[in-house]
């Protein structure tokens, strides 16, 4: 075939037209805002300053969710998971600095921190799961995982800002494990096992709105002043007294990633406790805005396809004639 300037220009024009057509029909979709929390959402309030690191929650979680002890030492004597994993849904981790003697102090201190699903208001895992195996309950806001749906692509693991979903890499038929806020216990009228057994009320269950108020109440009390702390459920009569700690004046999870349903209080800055500073706009909302911008009602791809069809038909014909 002879190369002709005319042909080329025609093709180029047609191609550009198709692309332009696609671009023009792409109405700039409105930005997808952060999702909002269901009014009856439930969650946990974890207060590092009253946690004594006893790991009762870890043990109770094992019982409630039928997970098995995990060993991190060679002797395999103790159940001591180093982190949440395919075998462990929650762990208490330790912050230690310098001499590590003073509780809830950043310098020369130590502190405990719970690791489990934060149940984001606008969870990345739900947004990115290709097969809807991750879901957010419209009433309770619990982020659950359904193994029967899961294909094991692990995109949720890659996308979760808190490294929560955990995969069983050591199994031929693996599952994904994450905290589901003991929804099976809640269905029986019980509360999550970790909150149920916590001896100090460091892990407290309740409606997120009430948990937020409780967190604000604690933050408002000056350090050293006696304060009362409920156990099990926020507002329960089972309270104990304890001098208020010097809190970092922020409840983690009130703004991060558009909010989470597990709130954290701490005496040591959260960045040092494994919870990075995160902006308010959720990654899910941003990614979805971009995808939606491109694929809004599939108008752009369809328009582009129509243009491509037209141009390709014309040009294949030309080639055939010339051949």
């Amino acid at each position: 075939m002879a190369f002709s300037r005319r042909n080329f220009l025609k093709g180029a024009a047609a191609g550009s037209a198709a692309a332009a057509c696609a671009a023009a029909t792409t109405t700039p979709a409105e930005a997808r805002e952060n999702l909002t929390m269901p009014p009856k959402a439930v969650g946990l309030l974890y207060d590092s300053t009253i946690c004594v690191g006893c790991k009762a929650c870890v043990v109770a979680c094992r019982d409630a969710n039928d997970t098995h002890p995990e060993f991190s030492t060679e002797e395999k004597l103790w159940d001591n998971p180093l982190d949440i994993s395919g075998k462990t849904i929650t762990v208490i981790k330790m912050y230690s600095e310098g001499t590590g003697q003073h509780k809830d102090q950043e310098k020369d201190g130590f502190a405990f921190m719970k690791r489990s699903c934060l149940h984001c208001v606008d969870p990345s895992c739900v947004s990115v799961c290709p097969v809807t195996a991750m879901t957010k309950d419209p009433v309770t806001g619990i982020v659950s995982h359904e193994p029967a749906d899961c294909i094991g692509c692990r995109y949720c693991i890659v996308a979760c800002p808190f490294a929560v979903p955990q995969f069983e890499f050591d199994k031929a038929f693996p599952k994904l494990l994450k905290c589901q806020l003991c929804k099976h216990r809640q269905a029986e009228g019980k509360i999550p096992a970790c909150a149920e057994v916590c001896p100090t009320g460091a892990t407290l269950f309740g409606p997120v709105t009430a948990l937020k108020e409780e967190a604000d109440r604690r933050l408002a009390v000056p350090a050293g002043k006696p304060n009362t702390f409920a156990r099990k459920t926020v507002g329960s009569p089972d309270v104990h007294e304890h001098p208020n700690a010097a809190y970092v004046q922020h409840a983690y999870g009130t703004t991060e990633m558009g909010g989470t349903q597990m709130l954290l209080l701490s005496g040591v800055p959260f960045e040092k406790m494994g919870y990075p500073k995160l902006r308010e706009r959720s990654y899910a909302s941003e990614a979805e805005t971009i995808q939606e911008g491109i694929y809004h009602d599939l108008i752009a791809p369809v328009a582009l396809f129509a243009g491509l069809l037209y141009v390709a038909r014309k040009n294949t014909k030309n080639h055939d004639e010339e051949e």
Partner: peptide, 9 residues
Amino acid sequence: LVYIFNRGE
């Protein structure tokens, strides 16, 4: 290149 921009060469 070939079919959309019609560069049959």
